[in-house]
Structures are given as structure tokens and as C-alpha cells.
Design a protein around this nucleic acid. Structure first.
Length: 309
RNA sequence: GGUAUCGUAGCUCAGUCGGUAGAGCAAUGGACUGAAAAUCCAUGUGUCGCUGGUUCGAUCCCGGCCGAUACCA
């Protein structure tokens, strides 16, 4: 199968390969991209940061040399970034890539980022970091109930549907209300965007036990590759969102003296497992997802079958 | 070999003055439009080590056995 002449689609096709962390997306995506002779767009909100190499399981130098990748190491830790920018940048890149070939592979585990590319995302104001900080302060000093009260006044419609226990949701809505003077809900259209390319979504999964085994092994491997030093190098930047990331926060806790190194490593494994579960929850909701084992031949067969539809 | 203590959920342990049991962690399910590797919500049946006995009734009391730990030989 791999190495045989590829069956190519008639229209530009974005081939999404999603799945939980450590399922084996990177190598499958490379094989699939080689098969279709195309490039890879990463959809991983932490592999953007070039400083985070070990802890985010960035593809190796050799892997990156095999197939042209995009959105790997394209940002520096201190840079602000968000889904909407990603959507725009990917769309613009796709125009170029589809001028060269009919297929582009997109792979990663950040569900929201994939969704933004496939379905679009509403036009909203970016976060104002100062405003966010002051709301955060209000949360700490006055409690969540106070923020809820504000939201109830500023956007009663959204107040009815938000998760009222989730500070992040409420703060974001308030940011938009305060920055624009309009209720957050008027911006939330949720109208799926029309794309001028076809989308085929493949979800990779493994029996849970096997996935956990992969996760545990990979964390041990990260540690032996020097994850502790990588985290230490950026300990002083821990306040940055990019470092609010599994693998780094647990080690920061160890540097703070809150736990021993083996405990921190154990916590990384646990939190990675939970992260994988949240990713699966997100992807399971997508009814268009075609589920496969992380095996390139199985994926290519599924993709070529989808071309026919 | 003797004595003592312990054996309860995947793990660490609590508890039942005898009426078949519950916390933390783990795990599982879910939500989620500019923080998304983030953030938030929900979910606790397990031969109470095995086996006899007492009892209307035993995980709890008594005996034996097995296992663990500590101390003594």
C-alpha cells in the first residue's frame, strides 16, 4: 500500500489526522503524507513554541526532514497566539499548498484548533491581557459569584447557558462585554463556514491500556532526553500561558519544593492520561470522524474509500 | 519456631458498640468559540484474606488456616 501509486482525489482535500496524545499521530501522518506526496500542517497548540521541544514531543529533526511541516516551532514562548489567528494563517497557507497539490495533511491533538480550520470561528475581539488580569484579580479577591453577577447584568442571555462554575468561561465573556460594550452573545453566531476544499477526518485511537502504556513510556523517554533541564531553562517564564502545560507545571512544582522528582514524573503521566481522555471526549463528539488504529495502511485505505464518496 | 499487629475499592486508608461499608487519590463519562496540553462538571458493589463456630443475622465476636510486617528465639 505505502509506496504504491496513490489514488488522488479530484478536489482539494484536507486530510485531518486527529487523536489523543501518544497514539502515534506523528509517524502515521508522515507515512500518509509521503504516500500522497504532500506537506503537513500541525494542529498542536504547544508544538508551535520552538523552545518546547522535549516536553511536547515535537517531531524529530529526521522526521521534519522527511516531509515539510508547518506550524512546528513557529512561535517563541513569549508570543501571544490564539485559535483565530491560527485559522487565518492556516487558510492562507492552504491556498498556497492546494496550488501545488490536491492533498494536505493536518495532524494534531488540539480539537478547538482543528475545528476552527474546518468549521470556522466567529469574529471576536482578542483578549485584552490587562483586562483579563484585573478580572482575575477580582475573582481572587471577591470570588466567582461577583463575576457571575457582572455577567448576569452584562449578558443575561449567555448567563443562561454558560458553565457558571467555570471561571475561564465567565472571564472571557466579561472581557468581550467590557471591551466592546456589547453582550458577548451577539458575537456568537456559530454559523459553520463554507470551505472551498473537502475535509476528511481520521481519528486515531488505541485500546485504553495500550494508550496508557504509550503515555507512560513516552514520559519516561522525555525525562531521559532531558525534560527536567528543559523545564529548568524556562522556570523563570512560568507565568506564560505556553508553559501552563503538562510536563512543565509538574516540574515547576518540584523546583518549588512541593514534591520529589519521582512524584513530579508520576504526576506528568497522570495528567497526560487525563489530557488524552479530554481529547478523546472532544473528538468523539465529531460524527464525521472516521476511526482507525494508528496504522498507515489502515488510514490510507479509509482515506481512499472516503475519496469515492 | 514463638509473640504481637495487620489483611476492607486499582492504591493509601477510615468504619460498622453485630443489621453486608466510605473518604482521598487513581480510573471512567461529559462540557467547552481568542487560556484549549487550558478550564470546568458528574460518577464509589467491593466474594470487607480463606474457612469453621456463636447468633435470627458476622466484614465486625471466637477458633483454625494462609499472607504481610515487627520483635523475640
Amino acid at each position: 500500500m505505502v509506496g504504491q501509486k496513490a489514488l488522488l482525489p479530484d478536489y482539494p482535500t484536507l486530510l485531518v489526522i486527529a487523536g489523543p496524545t501518544a497514539v502515534g499521530k506523528t509517524s502515521v501522518a508522515i507515512e500518509v503524507a509521503l504516500h500522497f506526496g504532500c506537506e503537513i500542517i500541525s494542529a498542536d497548540s504547544r508544538q508551535f513554541y520552538r523552545e518546547l521541544r522535549i516536553g511536547t514531543a515535537t517531531p524529530s529533526i529526521q522526521q521534519l526532514a522527511t516531509v515539510q511541516h508547518h506550524f512546528i516551532g513557529n512561535l517563541s514562548l513569549a508570543e501571544d497566539y490564539n485559535v483565530a489567528r491560527y485559522e487565518q494563517e492556516v487558510l492562507s497557507l492552504l491556498t498556497d499548498l492546494f496550488a501545488k497539490g490536491k492533498v494536505v495533511v493536518m495532524t494534531g491533538g488540539s480539537g478547538l484548533y482543528i475545528k476552527a480550520v474546518c468549521e470556522g470561528i466567529d469574529v471576536l475581539p482578542d483578549a485584552d491581557l490587562l483586562l483579563r488580569e484585573s478580572l482575575q484579580f477580582k475573582l481572587e479577591s471577591e470570588g466567582l459569584a461577583s463575576l457571575r453577577g457582572m455577567l448576569q447584568k452584562l449578558d443575561p442571555e449567555y448567563y443562561q447557558i454558560v458553565d457558571l462554575a467555570n471561571p475561564n468561561r465567565i472571564i472571557r465573556a466579561l472581557e468581550v462585554c467590557l471591551a466592546t460594550g456589547k453582550p458577548y452573545s451577539v458575537f456568537r453566531k456559530h454559523k459553520p463556514a463554507q470551505r472551498d476544499f473537502r475535509i476528511i477526518k481520521i481519528g486515531l485511537d488505541l485500546p485504553r491500556e495500550e494508550l496508557h502504556h504509550n503515555i507512560n513510556n513516552r514520559v519516561d523517554q522525555m525525562v531521559s532526553e532531558g525534560l527536567e533541564q528543559e523545564a529548568r531553562d524556562f522556570y523563570h517564564l512560568r507565568h506564560l500561558n505556553a508553559l501552563n502545560t503538562v510536563g512543565y507545571r509538574e516540574l515547576f512544582g518540584y523546583f518549588d519544593g512541593n514534591c520529589a522528582l519521582p512524584d513530579a514524573i508520576e504526576k506528568i503521566k497522570t495528567n497526560t492520561r487525563r489530557y488524552a481522555r479530554r481529547q478523546l471526549t472532544w473528538f468523539h463528539k465529531d460524527k464525521k470522524m472516521i476511526w482507525c488504529r494508528p496504522d498507515e495502511e489502515e488510514v490510507i485505505l479509509a482515506v481512499e474509500a472516503a475519496f469515492e464518496e
